[in-house]
Amino acid sequence: MSTFRDWAQLLRVSALFTVPGDALAGAAAAGGRADLRTLRAIGCSLCLYEAGMALNDWADRGEDARDRPNRPLPSGRIRPGAALGAAAGLTGVGLAMAARAGRPAAAVAGALAATVWAYDLKLKHTHAGAVAMGAARGLDLLLGAVVTGHTPLRPAVALSSAALAAHTYAVTRVSRHETTGGSSLAPFAALATSAVISTGLVLQGLRGRGRDVGAGAAGSVLAYWPDASAVGGPARGSRLSRGLRLSRSLTAPALAATYGTAAGRPYLHAVLNPSPPLTQRAVGGGIRSLIPLQAALAAHAGAPALGGALMALAPIARRVSWKVSPT
């Protein structure tokens, strides 16, 4: 009989911690508040992500029998029909949750679900596969943006979505060589991509241009900071206020630099030695580094407190990945 650990391995539960940040970063970029609709968007994202994991292994069960016979399906620990049923059920639940969040969310979730199924069933082993994966992450962030009720198609949303999509595209290209290794080009391209994204966010933050929704989100629960002028009188409040503003201005570039380091180190190792183990580590590191990227994007959108909160997921994801691989 299948065990909880079997299903945890099939569904890659350690990678789940990279999902909530998509919707939250999208809400921050749109200048909205996190509310019940945002939670429904996160629930939809989690369901569709897990549906994709189950469907991926169902579609690849023949290939895995040759290259990864210890996975739950080729080893017989989970029946193929059960995996396919789980994918269909999770997709249905995810779409229902999106529908409860409103028509815009339902439309984006429908496009996201179609992208996930198309990738797993048809596009994965084609040149369009990595593009589809990147599009899925971009749509996931857009899902969090549209549920806010604010105008989602603003520069902050477009840039955040593009950054997530580019990162995911690069990781997917590296994952093509997980079992065989031998390619330095894919991890080098991923290293360059993460360096460009990280450097761009750092420079943008240092120039003070990374908070194009900051004024509109100042009262948001996503971007709260204490009122320094009410602490210890005007003089002390003024000094404390300047300190808080400085802290806010440094949070975004610091998180961007953290992302660049987290993503770049495993990619560099795979460039220098493109063996299957190091390539797999590069893929896992690329997946987990989505968390600091989401945190940096939220901070640049005017929600530094949210960015710091998202970073709390990083050590949890790392610890769980020691027991259940995210790839």
Rank of each mutant, 00 (worst) to 15 (best):
L10N: 08
L11P: 14
A15Q: 11
V19W: 03
A23Y: 01
L24K: 09
L24W: 12
A25D: 07
G32E: 01
R33F: 13
R33K: 14
D35I: 07
T38G: 11
T38I: 10
E50R: 00
G52Q: 03
D60S: 06
R61K: 02
G62C: 14
R66P: 15
R68S: 11
R77A: 15
I78T: 08
P80V: 01
A86V: 08
G89C: 11
A96C: 06
G102E: 15
R103Q: 15
A111M: 11
A113I: 01
A113K: 07
A114Q: 07
V116Y: 05
A118T: 08
K122G: 15
G129R: 04
G129D: 12
G134Q: 13
A135N: 06
A136S: 15
L141A: 06
L141E: 08
L141T: 03
L143K: 05
A145I: 01
V146H: 09
H150S: 11
L153T: 11
V157R: 06
L164I: 00
V174M: 11
G182H: 01
S184F: 00
A189M: 04
A190C: 00
S198Y: 00
T199K: 04
G200I: 02
G200P: 11
L201T: 06
L206T: 07
L206C: 12
G208C: 12
R209L: 06
D212F: 04
D212C: 15
V213M: 14
G214I: 06
S220G: 10
W225L: 12
S229Y: 10
A235T: 05
R236P: 03
S238W: 04
R242T: 15
G243Q: 04
G243K: 08
L244F: 07
L246I: 01
A252E: 15
Y259N: 12
T261V: 04
T261Q: 06
A263E: 09
R265E: 03
P266V: 02
H269E: 13
A270T: 03
P274M: 02
T279R: 07
Q280P: 14
R281S: 12
G286Y: 06
R288T: 04
A301E: 00
G302Y: 01
G302T: 03
A309I: 03
A309C: 06
M311A: 14
M311N: 08
A312D: 09
R318Y: 13
K323L: 15
S325R: 06
